[in-house]
């Protein structure tokens, strides 16, 4: 009995904050909710068919896919580059690393706010910078420009996390293995792709899943700040659309149906992650 008692607080938290809302969402995805909360009508799978046939949903899903691809790819790429360089720094290494990790402490909405300031129409230094190259950015007006700012901010926010993992992954690679490689292979570039990179692969796979999850869900704050009050023609992610339709559009049923889809997606990602972690070798 005692073990269950000890588990109870954790189970309670999981139930109240995850299982119960999830069950609520699944249930309400089959109902059409009255906007004023006076009742609901069972509509079967209508919410799902409406959602999947709507052009708007397709557009947001496509943007989310593109957004996720770029955020994941770019933040992993830059972080790996920085980690490889930081791993080679000998003097002032800790200052360098601390500076790179600093951004990790910034909360997503604050990161979004900083992004908004950087890309501000009138005072944003990024806008000024690109203007020098003849690109007149219009954040919040131009679809492409807004997407660009959103991706840059999201990437910038995520690089430190990836950097920390890649750096510790690099430092976990045996020094003598790298030395053996330097005797076996003259080209540092080739050495990286044939020895270092394969040995970083377990870290890379783990980060890939983490980053996809991040791009999908944790970028809510960034998206919210950048498109604040003007979601009209602006790019938003699926998660943001759940919020828009549910709390702005008062379509709780449709919003629930969308979140059920997202739940299934997280479920699949989690399974892939466990499969990969199980199958991937942990080199010692």
């Amino acid at each position: 009995m005692v073990p269950y008692m000890l588990l109870l607080p954790q189970l309670a938290i999981v139930t109240i904050f995850f299982l119960w809302p999830a069950a609520e969402a699944i249930q309400s995805s089959f109902y059409l909710e009255d906007p004023f909360g006076f009742g609901s009508t069972f509509v079967g799978l209508d919410n799902f068919t409406d959602m999947l046939t709507s052009t708007d949903y397709g557009r947001v899903a496509r943007f989310t896919a593109v957004f996720t691809f770029f955020v994941t790819f770019l933040s992993l790429g830059f972080a790996l580059l920085l980690a490889v360089k930081a791993d080679k720094v000998l003097r002032g290494a800790s200052t360098y690393k601390t500076l790179l990790m600093w951004v990790y402490a910034v909360a997503p909405p604050v990161a979004g706010l900083i992004g908004v300031l950087l890309f501000d129409q009138h005072v944003g230094p990024m806008v000024d910078l690109f203007a020098m190259f003849g690109w007149k950015m219009q954040i919040g007006v131009n679809y492409f420009d807004t997407s660009f700012a959103m991706i840059v901010t999201a990437v910038w926010k995520q690089i430190p996390v990836n950097f920390i993992f890649f750096l510790s992954g690099l430092q976990g690679i045996s020094k003598s293995v790298q030395e053996a490689a330097s005797i076996d292979c003259r080209s540092g570039f080739r050495r990286f792709w044939t020895v270092t990179f394969p040995l970083l692969a377990p870290t890379g796979f783990f980060l890939l899943i983490i980053n996809i999850t991040y791009a999908f869900f944790d970028t809510f704050g960034i998206v919210d700040v950048i498109v604040k009050n003007e979601p009209g023609n602006n790019p938003v992610t699926l998660v943001y659309k759940v919020y828009l339709d549910g709390f702005r559009g008062n379509d709780l049923g449709g919003s629930s149906a969308q979140s059920v889809i997202l739940m299934a997606l997280v479920f699949i990602l989690t399974i892939i992650q466990f499969r990969l972690i199980e199958r991937r070798v942990h080199y010692t």
């Binding site: 030395e179 053996a180 005797i183 003259r186 020895v195 070798v281 080199y283």
Partner: peptide, 20 residues
Amino acid sequence: VDPADRDIAMVFQNYALYPH
């Protein structure tokens, strides 16, 4: 001269085999 060009081979204490 770069280690790879010295025409030597080294055996390390912990073997330093490529694990992958």
